[in-house]
Design a protein around this nucleic acid. Structure first.
Lengths: 164, 164
DNA sequence: TATTGTTATACTCTATAACTATA
DNA sequence: TATAGTTATAGAGTATAACAATA
Protein backbone atom coordinates (compact mmCIF):
# COMPACT_ATOMS: atom_id res chain seq x y z
CA UNK A 1 0.00 0.00 0.00
CA UNK A 2 0.88 3.63 -0.12
CA UNK A 3 3.12 3.68 -3.10
CA UNK A 4 4.15 7.07 -4.33
CA UNK A 5 2.72 7.81 -7.72
CA UNK A 6 5.79 8.28 -9.80
CA UNK A 7 4.32 8.04 -13.26
CA UNK A 8 5.19 11.64 -13.91
CA UNK A 9 7.72 14.07 -12.59
CA UNK A 10 5.91 16.48 -10.34
CA UNK A 11 6.80 19.51 -8.35
CA UNK A 12 6.06 19.35 -4.66
CA UNK A 13 2.94 21.47 -4.92
CA UNK A 14 1.46 19.28 -7.65
CA UNK A 15 2.40 15.99 -6.09
CA UNK A 16 -0.47 13.69 -5.32
CA UNK A 17 -0.28 10.33 -3.61
CA UNK A 18 -3.74 9.51 -4.86
CA UNK A 19 -6.79 9.14 -2.70
CA UNK A 20 -5.96 5.71 -1.32
CA UNK A 21 -2.31 6.20 -0.44
CA UNK A 22 -3.06 9.72 0.70
CA UNK A 23 -5.67 8.54 3.16
CA UNK A 24 -3.58 5.59 4.34
CA UNK A 25 -0.49 7.66 4.97
CA UNK A 26 -2.50 10.42 6.59
CA UNK A 27 -4.08 7.87 8.90
CA UNK A 28 -0.68 6.57 9.94
CA UNK A 29 0.43 10.13 10.59
CA UNK A 30 -2.56 10.83 12.82
CA UNK A 31 -2.22 7.51 14.62
CA UNK A 32 1.44 8.26 15.21
CA UNK A 33 0.48 11.54 16.84
CA UNK A 34 -2.10 9.80 19.01
CA UNK A 35 0.43 7.16 19.94
CA UNK A 36 3.12 9.65 20.83
CA UNK A 37 0.81 11.77 22.94
CA UNK A 38 -0.62 8.70 24.66
CA UNK A 39 2.89 7.42 25.35
CA UNK A 40 3.84 10.78 26.82
CA UNK A 41 1.10 10.20 29.39
CA UNK A 42 2.16 6.57 29.73
CA UNK A 43 -1.03 5.09 28.35
CA UNK A 44 -1.85 3.19 25.18
CA UNK A 45 -4.07 4.52 22.42
CA UNK A 46 -6.86 2.19 23.43
CA UNK A 47 -6.68 3.36 27.05
CA UNK A 48 -6.79 6.93 25.81
CA UNK A 49 -9.82 6.13 23.66
CA UNK A 50 -11.51 4.49 26.61
CA UNK A 51 -11.22 7.52 28.85
CA UNK A 52 -12.02 9.79 25.93
CA UNK A 53 -15.30 8.00 25.43
CA UNK A 54 -16.10 8.22 29.12
CA UNK A 55 -15.47 11.95 29.33
CA UNK A 56 -19.14 12.76 29.26
CA UNK A 57 -21.03 9.53 29.73
CA UNK A 58 -20.91 6.34 31.68
CA UNK A 59 -21.31 3.11 29.80
CA UNK A 60 -21.67 -0.56 30.58
CA UNK A 61 -19.17 -3.17 29.49
CA UNK A 62 -21.29 -4.35 26.58
CA UNK A 63 -21.75 -0.79 25.36
CA UNK A 64 -18.03 -0.16 25.55
CA UNK A 65 -17.46 -3.31 23.56
CA UNK A 66 -19.79 -2.00 20.89
CA UNK A 67 -18.30 1.49 20.75
CA UNK A 68 -14.72 0.23 20.71
CA UNK A 69 -15.60 -2.68 18.47
CA UNK A 70 -14.00 -5.21 20.77
CA UNK A 71 -15.18 -8.41 22.36
CA UNK A 72 -16.68 -7.91 25.81
CA UNK A 73 -14.00 -10.14 27.29
CA UNK A 74 -11.40 -7.72 25.97
CA UNK A 75 -13.21 -4.89 27.72
CA UNK A 76 -12.92 -6.72 31.01
CA UNK A 77 -9.14 -6.64 30.80
CA UNK A 78 -9.04 -3.11 29.43
CA UNK A 79 -11.16 -1.77 32.27
CA UNK A 80 -9.24 -3.89 34.78
CA UNK A 81 -6.00 -2.22 33.78
CA UNK A 82 -7.52 1.25 33.66
CA UNK A 83 -9.03 0.68 37.08
CA UNK A 84 -5.74 -0.57 38.47
CA UNK A 85 -4.20 2.72 37.32
CA UNK A 86 -6.93 4.72 38.97
CA UNK A 87 -8.38 6.11 35.74
CA UNK A 88 -11.84 4.57 35.89
CA UNK A 89 -14.13 2.93 38.40
CA UNK A 90 -16.81 0.24 38.06
CA UNK A 91 -20.08 1.24 39.67
CA UNK A 92 -23.20 -0.77 40.37
CA UNK A 93 -26.30 -0.08 38.32
CA UNK A 94 -29.42 0.38 40.41
CA UNK A 95 -32.13 -1.90 39.12
CA UNK A 96 -29.94 -4.34 37.24
CA UNK A 97 -27.79 -6.64 39.30
CA UNK A 98 -25.95 -7.96 36.28
CA UNK A 99 -24.71 -4.68 34.93
CA UNK A 100 -21.89 -2.35 35.86
CA UNK A 101 -21.18 1.12 34.62
CA UNK A 102 -17.69 2.41 34.04
CA UNK A 103 -17.04 5.98 35.08
CA UNK A 104 -13.98 8.20 35.05
CA UNK A 105 -12.22 9.01 38.27
CA UNK A 106 -11.06 12.59 38.69
CA UNK A 107 -7.61 11.39 37.73
CA UNK A 108 -9.02 9.82 34.59
CA UNK A 109 -10.95 12.96 33.76
CA UNK A 110 -7.86 15.09 34.18
CA UNK A 111 -5.86 12.79 31.96
CA UNK A 112 -8.58 12.77 29.31
CA UNK A 113 -8.58 16.54 29.28
CA UNK A 114 -4.80 16.84 28.99
CA UNK A 115 -4.64 14.17 26.35
CA UNK A 116 -7.29 15.87 24.25
CA UNK A 117 -5.60 19.24 24.53
CA UNK A 118 -2.23 17.85 23.57
CA UNK A 119 -3.61 15.96 20.55
CA UNK A 120 -5.37 19.13 19.53
CA UNK A 121 -2.16 21.08 19.66
CA UNK A 122 -0.03 18.52 17.87
CA UNK A 123 -2.52 17.88 15.09
CA UNK A 124 -2.88 21.59 14.54
CA UNK A 125 0.88 21.73 14.21
CA UNK A 126 0.69 18.93 11.68
CA UNK A 127 -1.62 20.97 9.43
CA UNK A 128 0.15 24.27 9.95
CA UNK A 129 1.48 23.97 6.42
CA UNK A 130 -1.98 24.42 4.98
CA UNK A 131 -3.61 27.77 4.47
CA UNK A 132 -6.68 28.53 6.55
CA UNK A 133 -9.00 27.87 3.66
CA UNK A 134 -7.34 24.58 2.80
CA UNK A 135 -7.52 23.54 6.43
CA UNK A 136 -11.22 24.28 6.48
CA UNK A 137 -11.73 22.37 3.27
CA UNK A 138 -9.85 19.38 4.60
CA UNK A 139 -11.91 19.51 7.75
CA UNK A 140 -15.15 19.51 5.79
CA UNK A 141 -14.06 16.75 3.44
CA UNK A 142 -12.88 14.55 6.29
CA UNK A 143 -16.20 15.14 8.01
CA UNK A 144 -18.12 14.18 4.91
CA UNK A 145 -16.23 10.91 4.56
CA UNK A 146 -16.73 10.09 8.22
CA UNK A 147 -20.41 10.94 8.21
CA UNK A 148 -21.03 9.10 4.97
CA UNK A 149 -19.34 6.05 6.41
CA UNK A 150 -21.35 6.30 9.60
CA UNK A 151 -24.56 6.64 7.61
CA UNK A 152 -23.60 3.63 5.51
CA UNK A 153 -23.21 1.65 8.69
CA UNK A 154 -26.51 2.88 10.00
CA UNK A 155 -25.12 4.73 12.97
CA UNK A 156 -26.98 7.47 14.72
CA UNK A 157 -25.62 10.88 13.90
CA UNK A 158 -28.37 13.20 14.99
CA UNK A 159 -28.15 13.12 18.74
CA UNK A 160 -24.81 14.73 19.33
CA UNK A 161 -23.14 11.40 19.18
CA UNK A 162 -19.54 11.75 20.19
CA UNK A 163 -17.04 9.79 18.21
CA UNK A 164 -13.68 8.68 19.37
CA UNK B 1 -11.22 13.57 21.48
CA UNK B 2 -13.49 13.75 18.52
CA UNK B 3 -16.38 15.58 19.98
CA UNK B 4 -19.01 16.70 17.54
CA UNK B 5 -19.17 20.44 17.30
CA UNK B 6 -22.66 21.14 18.43
CA UNK B 7 -22.44 24.85 19.03
CA UNK B 8 -24.86 25.47 16.22
CA UNK B 9 -27.57 23.49 14.56
CA UNK B 10 -26.29 22.38 11.21
CA UNK B 11 -27.63 20.51 8.25
CA UNK B 12 -25.72 17.44 7.23
CA UNK B 13 -24.00 19.13 4.32
CA UNK B 14 -22.72 21.96 6.49
CA UNK B 15 -21.68 19.83 9.39
CA UNK B 16 -18.04 20.03 10.34
CA UNK B 17 -16.26 18.02 12.99
CA UNK B 18 -13.39 20.47 12.93
CA UNK B 19 -9.93 19.74 11.68
CA UNK B 20 -8.77 17.77 14.72
CA UNK B 21 -11.79 15.54 15.23
CA UNK B 22 -12.20 15.19 11.50
CA UNK B 23 -8.68 13.89 11.07
CA UNK B 24 -8.87 11.66 14.12
CA UNK B 25 -12.13 10.04 13.11
CA UNK B 26 -11.00 9.70 9.53
CA UNK B 27 -7.84 7.97 10.71
CA UNK B 28 -9.87 5.49 12.74
CA UNK B 29 -12.05 4.86 9.72
CA UNK B 30 -9.04 4.12 7.53
CA UNK B 31 -7.40 1.97 10.18
CA UNK B 32 -10.63 0.03 10.56
CA UNK B 33 -10.60 -0.68 6.82
CA UNK B 34 -6.99 -1.81 7.00
CA UNK B 35 -7.78 -3.99 10.00
CA UNK B 36 -10.82 -5.58 8.37
CA UNK B 37 -9.00 -6.31 5.15
CA UNK B 38 -5.99 -7.68 7.00
CA UNK B 39 -8.26 -9.85 9.12
CA UNK B 40 -9.97 -11.16 6.00
CA UNK B 41 -6.58 -12.49 4.94
CA UNK B 42 -5.92 -13.66 8.47
CA UNK B 43 -3.01 -11.33 9.15
CA UNK B 44 -2.55 -8.36 11.44
CA UNK B 45 -2.07 -4.79 10.24
CA UNK B 46 1.59 -4.91 11.17
CA UNK B 47 2.11 -8.12 9.20
CA UNK B 48 0.39 -6.49 6.24
CA UNK B 49 2.63 -3.45 6.58
CA UNK B 50 5.68 -5.69 6.72
CA UNK B 51 4.91 -7.45 3.48
CA UNK B 52 3.78 -4.19 1.90
CA UNK B 53 7.17 -2.69 2.61
CA UNK B 54 8.93 -5.70 1.18
CA UNK B 55 6.95 -5.69 -2.06
CA UNK B 56 9.77 -4.09 -3.97
CA UNK B 57 12.85 -4.18 -1.77
CA UNK B 58 14.64 -6.41 0.65
CA UNK B 59 15.70 -4.96 3.95
CA UNK B 60 17.73 -6.00 6.95
CA UNK B 61 16.25 -6.33 10.42
CA UNK B 62 17.64 -3.01 11.59
CA UNK B 63 16.26 -1.25 8.54
CA UNK B 64 12.85 -2.78 9.11
CA UNK B 65 13.00 -1.58 12.69
CA UNK B 66 13.64 1.92 11.45
CA UNK B 67 10.93 1.92 8.80
CA UNK B 68 8.32 0.40 11.11
CA UNK B 69 9.53 2.42 14.07
CA UNK B 70 9.90 -0.63 16.27
CA UNK B 71 12.68 -2.06 18.38
CA UNK B 72 14.83 -4.57 16.52
CA UNK B 73 13.86 -7.25 19.02
CA UNK B 74 10.25 -6.72 18.00
CA UNK B 75 11.24 -7.24 14.39
CA UNK B 76 12.75 -10.59 15.26
CA UNK B 77 9.38 -11.87 16.46
CA UNK B 78 7.46 -10.20 13.66
CA UNK B 79 9.64 -11.79 11.01
CA UNK B 80 9.63 -15.10 12.88
CA UNK B 81 5.86 -15.25 12.69
CA UNK B 82 5.74 -14.11 9.08
CA UNK B 83 8.36 -16.69 8.20
CA UNK B 84 6.45 -19.41 10.00
CA UNK B 85 3.45 -18.55 7.86
CA UNK B 86 5.51 -18.73 4.71
CA UNK B 87 5.18 -15.05 3.84
CA UNK B 88 8.85 -14.02 4.06
CA UNK B 89 12.25 -15.62 4.16
CA UNK B 90 15.53 -14.62 5.81
CA UNK B 91 18.45 -14.67 3.43
CA UNK B 92 22.17 -14.39 4.06
CA UNK B 93 23.93 -11.22 2.99
CA UNK B 94 27.10 -11.87 1.00
CA UNK B 95 29.96 -9.95 2.52
CA UNK B 96 28.45 -9.42 5.97
CA UNK B 97 28.14 -12.46 8.16
CA UNK B 98 26.12 -10.60 10.78
CA UNK B 99 23.33 -9.38 8.55
CA UNK B 100 20.25 -10.99 7.09
CA UNK B 101 17.88 -9.67 4.50
CA UNK B 102 14.18 -10.32 4.63
CA UNK B 103 12.49 -11.07 1.31
CA UNK B 104 8.97 -11.95 0.31
CA UNK B 105 8.13 -15.47 -0.71
CA UNK B 106 5.84 -15.86 -3.70
CA UNK B 107 3.03 -16.49 -1.24
CA UNK B 108 3.90 -13.26 0.57
CA UNK B 109 4.04 -11.36 -2.69
CA UNK B 110 0.67 -12.69 -3.71
CA UNK B 111 -0.85 -11.74 -0.38
CA UNK B 112 0.66 -8.26 -0.55
CA UNK B 113 -0.88 -7.76 -3.95
CA UNK B 114 -4.31 -8.96 -2.92
CA UNK B 115 -4.22 -6.95 0.26
CA UNK B 116 -3.32 -3.78 -1.60
CA UNK B 117 -6.04 -4.31 -4.18
CA UNK B 118 -8.67 -4.95 -1.54
CA UNK B 119 -7.71 -1.89 0.51
CA UNK B 120 -7.83 0.12 -2.66
CA UNK B 121 -11.33 -1.06 -3.43
CA UNK B 122 -12.68 -0.61 0.06
CA UNK B 123 -11.21 2.84 0.54
CA UNK B 124 -12.60 3.93 -2.79
CA UNK B 125 -15.96 2.70 -1.58
CA UNK B 126 -15.50 4.77 1.56
CA UNK B 127 -15.11 7.97 -0.46
CA UNK B 128 -17.78 7.14 -3.01
CA UNK B 129 -19.99 9.75 -1.38
CA UNK B 130 -17.68 12.53 -2.57
CA UNK B 131 -17.83 14.01 -6.02
CA UNK B 132 -14.85 13.47 -8.26
CA UNK B 133 -13.57 16.95 -7.68
CA UNK B 134 -13.92 16.67 -3.92
CA UNK B 135 -12.15 13.37 -3.97
CA UNK B 136 -9.28 14.90 -5.90
CA UNK B 137 -9.14 17.81 -3.51
CA UNK B 138 -9.08 15.49 -0.51
CA UNK B 139 -6.32 13.49 -2.13
CA UNK B 140 -4.23 16.60 -2.70
CA UNK B 141 -4.81 17.96 0.78
CA UNK B 142 -3.96 14.65 2.42
CA UNK B 143 -0.81 14.53 0.35
CA UNK B 144 0.18 18.01 1.38
CA UNK B 145 -0.21 17.19 5.05
CA UNK B 146 1.77 13.98 4.68
CA UNK B 147 4.55 15.60 2.68
CA UNK B 148 4.75 18.57 4.99
CA UNK B 149 5.05 16.24 7.94
CA UNK B 150 7.72 14.20 6.21
CA UNK B 151 9.64 17.34 5.34
CA UNK B 152 9.37 18.52 8.94
CA UNK B 153 10.91 15.27 10.05
CA UNK B 154 13.65 15.56 7.50
CA UNK B 155 12.71 12.48 5.54
CA UNK B 156 13.76 11.90 1.99
CA UNK B 157 10.93 12.42 -0.46
CA UNK B 158 12.72 12.69 -3.75
CA UNK B 159 13.86 9.18 -4.49
CA UNK B 160 10.61 7.42 -5.03
CA UNK B 161 10.41 6.56 -1.39
CA UNK B 162 7.51 4.22 -0.79
CA UNK B 163 5.46 4.80 2.28
CA UNK B 164 3.50 2.24 4.16
C1' DT C 1 -34.02 -18.19 27.57
C1' DA C 2 -31.53 -14.02 26.93
C1' DT C 3 -28.38 -10.68 28.71
C1' DT C 4 -24.36 -8.96 31.40
C1' DG C 5 -20.16 -9.70 32.69
C1' DT C 6 -15.97 -12.62 34.11
C1' DT C 7 -12.57 -16.36 33.72
C1' DA C 8 -9.38 -19.49 31.40
C1' DT C 9 -6.56 -19.90 27.69
C1' DA C 10 -3.75 -18.87 23.80
C1' DC C 11 -1.74 -15.86 20.66
C1' DT C 12 0.23 -11.45 18.71
C1' DC C 13 2.69 -7.42 19.51
C1' DT C 14 5.88 -4.62 21.99
C1' DA C 15 9.91 -3.00 24.87
C1' DT C 16 14.10 -3.59 27.87
C1' DA C 17 18.16 -5.86 29.00
C1' DA C 18 21.53 -9.11 28.18
C1' DC C 19 23.65 -11.89 24.98
C1' DT C 20 26.36 -13.82 20.54
C1' DA C 21 28.73 -13.20 16.40
C1' DT C 22 30.86 -10.47 13.07
C1' DA C 23 33.12 -6.10 11.39
C1' DT D 1 34.49 -0.93 19.99
C1' DA D 2 30.52 -0.83 17.11
C1' DT D 3 26.98 -3.10 14.50
C1' DA D 4 23.49 -6.86 13.37
C1' DG D 5 20.62 -9.78 15.22
C1' DT D 6 18.61 -13.06 18.84
C1' DT D 7 16.98 -14.54 23.38
C1' DA D 8 14.75 -14.04 27.81
C1' DT D 9 11.34 -11.86 30.08
C1' DA D 10 7.35 -9.17 31.10
C1' DG D 11 3.27 -6.95 30.04
C1' DA D 12 -0.63 -5.09 27.08
C1' DG D 13 -4.16 -6.19 23.97
C1' DT D 14 -7.15 -9.35 21.62
C1' DA D 15 -10.41 -13.36 20.61
C1' DT D 16 -12.83 -17.81 21.63
C1' DA D 17 -15.11 -20.74 24.63
C1' DA D 18 -17.05 -21.77 28.86
C1' DC D 19 -19.01 -20.08 32.90
C1' DA D 20 -22.02 -17.54 36.71
C1' DA D 21 -25.51 -14.44 37.94
C1' DT D 22 -29.45 -11.85 36.94
C1' DA D 23 -33.51 -10.51 34.06
Amino acid sequence: MATVNSKTRQTASEEDLGIVDGLVQLSFLVQAVLGRVAASYDVSIIQARLIGILRDRELGMAQLAQVLNLDKSSITGLVDRAEKRGLVRRTAVPGDGRAVHVVLTSKGAKLAKMFTAEVDEQLKDAVEGLSDSKRRRLSVLATQVVLHDAATRGLDLSTGRRGV
